[in-house]
Amino acid sequence: MYRHSHCEGFQQDPTAQELGLAGPEGGLGPLEQLVAWMRKRSLFVLAFGTGCGAIEMRPLMTSRFDAERFGIVNAATPRQADVLVISGYLAIKTLKRVIRSYEQMQEPKYVIALGSCTINGGMYWDSYNTVKQVHRYLPVDMYINGCMPRPEALIEGFVALQGRIARGEPGGYQRYRERIDWYKANQRRVLGDNMLPDYTYDWYHAGGIA
């Protein structure tokens, strides 16, 4: 039986999300624009197939919807990926693995979360071991709603993310760096003794030099 105090959906911290989206409005220089354009045109995707959303990733990459025309390709390992796609509900056990994968990615990196399960728990809203709001544990750049979102919706989400990259808006990875303590506290609250070992995120405290 769930209690309100156990369901983190009722404890969200709205200022934390708004702060992340309000970036400095300073324009990009010509070289930065060029780099942003390259980044926009080439997104390597690490598809973390947790729920039914993994089914929707296949048609996206294959002949019918062909995401490669936007420069979106599957990456084999977290090290080579730019975008982490969390496709569906996250059990707390899985959350640990997702965080580990995310922290292995090289910056700049972005997170896209698919489906209503990642936004509010979806049909698992009262489950005792499912994460309700992913942005409390990982900096989500783009939510794509639906249950499940069709590949068209996915492409629209990717294009919106590309627009954000091209405009040079601060990505979620900067938020994760700046508020690492907040994210880690949230992660520790659900993972408890299962928390990731310190050495996996120590370098975030080293002032961004690693």
């Binding site: 780099v35 390259m38 080439s42 390597f44 294959t62 062909d66 490669e68 025309r69 420069g71 390709v73």
Partner: peptide, 15 residues
């Protein structure tokens, strides 16, 4: 499929 643009490898590499 349509496939990526012919400069896709340049974008990937510079990125």
């Amino acid at each position: 499929r349509w496939g990526p643009s012919i400069f896709q490898n340049l974008y990937d590499n510079l990125k």
